[in-house]
Computed example of a mutant assay.
Amino acid sequence: MGTGEESRPDPSTEGPTSGEGAADGVRVAILAGGLSHERDVSLRSGRRVAAALRDQGLHVEVLDVDADLLPALERLRPDVVWPLVHGSTGEDGSLQDLLALLGLPFVGTAAAGCRLASRKPVAKAVLRAAGLPTPDYAALPQSLFREVGAQSVLRAVEDRLGLPLVVKPAGGGSALGVTVVSEASQLPGAMVACFAYGDEALIERRVDGTEVAVSVVDLGDGPRALPAVEIVTDGPYDYDARYNPGRSEYFVPARLDEAQTRTVGDLAVAVHRTLGLRHLSRTDMILEDAGTAWFLDINVAPGMTETSLFPQAAQADGPLDDLYVDIVRAALRG
């Protein structure tokens, strides 16, 4: 169910749903909203993608993920669905399984790949087993702190991983519940903030370097990296810095030399392939001065807002609207 009419996508305000060159009459249902903490970001992403596709003449309707979703899909009978629900059911494979049960082609990774990618500790374990660099970490559920004792657990974390650390929920995105811990006294508060967004914490050794996001597109001829986006922010790259213009500065393409550009692009493509992703993804990483690119996180449904990283990379590569249409056509092909 939705959380209120004021937050629901309103198809009547989304502009025309047809036009010349309507891509062979393709009907697209964009799924946005849902009940996760990232609902508002999802709504903004959905509206922007819908506008871009309509500008290219596709028939588009934006649907919320609530009790009206299945009747709406039955009424619309879309040729392809583009899930843009961030966090929880939007990226953990459950929504993708539902679309597969309904026999609807959809943009993005199938359920199995989503399950690997959406749980940060699982993704890190799979990628580390494949030989890809990711910082040392521990994944600890909230229940363990109650059973064993918080002080004992945190002491073990400090002894094994050292400081500084980054504490983040094992699932979800948009940097919600993420804290950079520079001193041991900050660690208990970081755990409390993390557990407000999930029952499992990923505690990761912090790596210093250049923060880079590399998006990947795969339209049927193999994955390729889009221009890297370098992120510079006044403080942590948190929710506010991501979605409120002015807090962060972006360099597209990133200010990297040829070898560094190849390194970050190769890592993003390797992550995409190793996790079995499809159509599009975005890998967040830190490039150390020594030259190693460290995997931090993978997004199978990257944000598409005005400050999001995937659209910035795509625009640096070519016309954004054309790429979105190509992604829809790739989903139609399977």
Rank of each mutant, 00 (worst) to 15 (best):
E6V: 15
T13F: 12
E20Q: 15
A22S: 15
I30T: 06
R39Q: 09
R44S: 13
R48F: 04
A51I: 10
R54Y: 12
G57V: 10
H59V: 12
P71S: 10
V81R: 11
P83Y: 10
V85P: 08
G90C: 03
E91M: 07
E91I: 05
E91T: 03
G93H: 05
L98S: 08
L101R: 15
L104G: 11
C114F: 10
R115Q: 13
S118I: 05
G131M: 10
L140D: 04
V153D: 01
V153Y: 03
L154F: 08
D159F: 12
P164H: 08
A175W: 02
L176I: 05
E183N: 12
P188K: 01
F195H: 02
Y197A: 00
G198A: 10
L202H: 01
L202Y: 03
I203A: 02
E204W: 03
R206W: 09
E211A: 07
G222A: 04
P223L: 01
A225K: 05
D238L: 08
A241V: 03
R242Q: 13
F251G: 14
R255F: 12
L256R: 05
E258Y: 09
V269K: 02
A270H: 01
T274F: 06
G276L: 02
R278T: 12
T283P: 00
A293N: 01
W294P: 01
V300K: 00
A301Y: 00
P302Q: 01
Q312A: 11
D317T: 06
P319R: 08
R333N: 12
